[in-house]
C-alpha cells in the first residue's frame, strides 16, 4: 500500500493513474534539480561570466549578432553562432584561409593611425565588438582600452568601477562598469587573463592583462581591413539607436561624432543607446 494515498488499492485504475501522476511529478522535480545542479556546476567551474554573456547575446537583436564575415562582405547573411568568440569557430578558419587578414600592426598601412569617419582607430591593435581594444605590450601583457567611439558614446563618466589587480577576466565577461546619467553600463572584456595593473579614463589604457591560454587569445578580435566595415555598421546602429521610434536613419550624413555625445544630445535615451552599442540586453 502506498502510505501517502489514503484508501489506495492495488488495482489497475489506481496503479495506472497514480503511476502516471507520480512519474510526471518525478520528471518535473528531477528536471528542476538538474537545472539547479547545472547552475551550481557553472559556479564551481567559473563559467558565470560565460553564461551571462551567452544570455545577453541571445537577447541581442539579430542584426547586432551579425558574423564578422558578413560585415566584411565575405558572406551575404550570417548570424554568429559562437557569441562573437571565433577561437573555436570552424567557419572562421575557412573564411581566413580564403581571405587572410594579417595580424594587427603587420599590414601595409601599419603603424599609421587610421582615421575613420573622424574617429581614431589605430591599426596596431585589435578591436572587440563591445568597443574595447587590445594592444600587445612588449612584456607579453595585453593593454585593454576603450575605443574612440566607445569613449565618445559614454562622454564624461561619473563613476567607474575597475577590477581589482589579480582578478581574472573572461572573454565577454565584465571588464569594468561605468555609471553615468543614472545608468550602469558594463564594458565587456575582450580577452581572458589576469589583471596585473589598472589605468582609467584619463590614462592611455584601462587594464593591463596577463593573457591565459595559447596563442589564440586574440583570434576572435577584429583587425586591419575588418575594422572599417564593422565601424560603418556600428555608426549605422548608433544612428538607429538615436533615432525616434520607427523613423529609421534620418541624421545628415557626413558629420563627425562629437567628443561627448550624451552632452550634445541630452534628450536621447542614452540608457538604451549604451545597452545597444555595448551589447548589453
Amino acid at each position: 500500500m502506498l502510505p501517502w494515498v489514503y484508501e489506495f488499492r492495488w488495482d489497475a485504475g489506481h496503479i495506472i493513474f497514480l503511476g502516471v501522476f507520480f512519474s510526471v511529478l518525478i520528471i518535473i522535480a528531477s528536471t528542476l534539480m538538474r537545472a539547479l545542479m547545472r547552475a551550481i556546476g557553472d559556479f564551481k567551474n567559473r563559467r558565470v561570466d560565460h553564461v551571462m554573456w551567452e544570455v545577453a547575446f541571445e537577447d541581442l537583436p539579430e542584426p547586432a549578432r551579425a558574423c564578422r564575415h558578413q560585415l566584411s562582405g565575405e558572406v551575404a547573411h550570417r548570424t554568429c553562432p559562437n557569441e562573437f568568440d571565433c577561437r573555436d569557430c570552424v567557419s572562421h578558419e575557412l573564411f581566413l584561409r580564403a581571405n587572410p587578414v594579417p595580424p594587427a600592426g603587420t599590414g601595409p598601412q601599419a603603424p599609421e593611425e587610421e582615421q575613420l569617419f573622424g574617429l581614431s582607430f589605430p591599426l596596431d591593435r585589435y578591436y572587440d565588438r563591445g568597443h574595447t581594444w587590445v594592444k600587445p605590450a612588449a612584456d607579453g601583457t595585453l593593454l585593454v582600452g576603450l575605443n574612440d567611439l566607445g569613449t565618445r558614446l559614454l562622454g564624461s563618466v561619473e563613476n567607474i568601477q575597475l577590477p581589482e589587480i589579480g582578478s581574472t577576466m573572461h572573454v565577454h565577461g565584465t571588464a569594468w562598469q561605468v555609471s553615468t546619467r543614472g545608468a550602469d553600463t558594463r564594458i565587456l572584456s575582450p580577452v581572458e587573463g589576469t589583471v596585473v595593473d589598472v589605468g582609467g579614463p584619463g590614462k592611455e589604457w584601462y587594464l593591463k592583462v596577463r593573457p591565459e591560454g595559447n596563442g589564440d587569445a586574440l583570434r576572435h578580435l577584429l583587425r586591419g581591413a575588418e575594422i572599417k566595415p564593422w565601424l560603418t555598421r556600428e555608426l549605422e546602429r548608433l544612428q538607429f539607436a538615436l533615432s525616434e521610434d520607427g523613423v529609421g536613419m534620418s541624421l545628415a550624413d557626413g558629420g563627425v561624432p562629437v567628443e561627448d555625445l550624451p552632452r550634445s544630445a541630452p534628450k536621447a535615451d542614452w540608457d538604451a543607446v549604451w545597452g545597444e552599442m555595448f551589447l548589453e540586453a
Binding site: T31, L32, R34, A35, L36, R38, A39, D42, F43, V48, V51, M52, E54, V55
Partner: peptide, 14 residues
C-alpha cells in the same frame, strides 16, 4: 544577480 541568471539559463536549456 548572477545566481538567478545562471539558474534561468540552465532551466531554459531544459
Amino acid at each position: 544577480v548572477p545566481s538567478y541568471l545562471v539558474f534561468e539559463f540552465n532551466l531554459h536549456k531544459l
